[in-house]
């Protein structure tokens, strides 16, 4: 059982990072970047190709993450900013960010071919035994980075001026200009952060997924589902959603059958949505809200 939990957390940490990639961007700009999965792919591809040509691994990893970070900014300027300038409430960015994703995918295939390439293997090696469960160093690193990311992000959001203004913009985009904040710079940072997060996810999952131009779609969807489980209002919550999705997937794989990971997480998600439509970790907490409603009805019943 511990094995399932740990493996699930390691898998889910990746989904969570992707979900956070979506969430950070949404938080500040109210936009869902449909090229997020392809940015993850970009970091894996760049790392792989550089290392295949002899670049030292550490440098290749850094280059990969830098690529996806920069890629996020490019998506903003190319596909999001012009659309939002026209109409802040339009959903047209769905089409334009999707377009960027399509281009990234096929461009990668044109440059590097359609077949999978090996990712530089750092830490996979042998497993470590933790209380009877086996985990690779890569997986341990993944879980560690995920926790660090969540904590780091929350500190950034709540303690720094930048983060606080980000929160304000998130709850009321009109405020930004009123308080003299440059909306563009906040958006750029948000998109860059989103790219950074999925870039890190990429270099963590690379040894398992190998490098292929077509990776983006499935990681993008998994991250999206994780985002919805955790709740979209808070980026930190989406990591929780990812971890839950990861554990559910491995649980289903282990205890039901290998195909159950197809449907089991979704059924759970549907149930979750029916009970807490805004995600498990919605602001204030689902539990608090239910408790409050319970209290109100008890007060009414008494009077």
């Amino acid at each position: 059982m511990l094995q399932v939990l740990l493996t699930g957390l390691a898998t889910g940490a990746i989904y969570g990072l992707v979900a956070m990639g979506y969430a950070v961007v949404y938080y500040v700009t109210r936009v869902i970047n449909f090229a997020t999965g392809q940015l993850l792919m970009a970091s894996i591809m760049v790392t792989t190709v550089l290392s295949m040509h002899g670049t030292p691994v550490a440098l290749a990893l850094a280059a990969g993450v830098a690529t996806s970070t920069l890629g996020g900014v490019v998506v903003y300027f190319l596909a999001v900013r012009p659309v939002l300038r026209f109409n802040r409430l339009s959903f047209a960015w769905l089409v334009s960010t999707l377009g960027v994703g399509i281009i990234l995918e096929s461009l990668a295939a044109v440059i590097w071919g359609t077949s999978s390439l090996p990712f530089p293997n750092l830490l996979n090696g042998r497993d470590v035994s933790i209380l009877g469960a086996a985990l690779t160093w890569q997986q341990i690193l993944t879980i560690g980075i995920a926790l660090f990311t969540v904590v780091g992000f929350e500190i950034f959001r709540k303690r720094t001026l930048f983060g606080k203004i980000g929160m304000a913009i998130s709850s009321d985009p009109d405020i930004a200009s009123a308080i003299g904040a440059n909306v563009t710079s906040y958006a750029v940072v948000a998109f860059a952060l989103g790219g950074l997060l999925v870039g890190v996810a990429g270099i963590l999952v690379g040894p398992l997924s190998f490098a292929n131009p077509y990776l983006g779609e499935s990681f993008g969807i998994s991250g999206f589902v994780a985002l919805m489980i955790g709740g979209i209002e808070q980026p930190a919550a989406s990591m929780g959603g990812g971890l839950i999705l990861g554990v559910l997937t491995i649980l289903a794989n282990t205890y039901i059958n290998a195909q159950a990971s197809d449907w089991f997480p979704f059924v759970v998600v549907m149930v979750v949505l029916l009970v807490t439509p805004n995600g498990v970790f919605m602001s204030g907490g689902a539990i608090k809200g239910i408790w409050r409603r319970f209290q109100t009805s008890r007060v009414e019943a008494k009077s």
């Binding site: 012009p82 659309v83 960015w93 334009s96 377009g99 399509i102 281009i103 995918e105 096929s106 044109v110």
Partner: peptide
């Protein structure tokens, strides 16, 4: 592959402009 890239580019150009 190039026509996929064109496809994506059309998405971007039409929507942005």
């Amino acid at each position: 592959l190039w026509q996929e890239i064109l496809f994506g580019a059309i998405f971007i150009f039409v929507i942005v402009f």
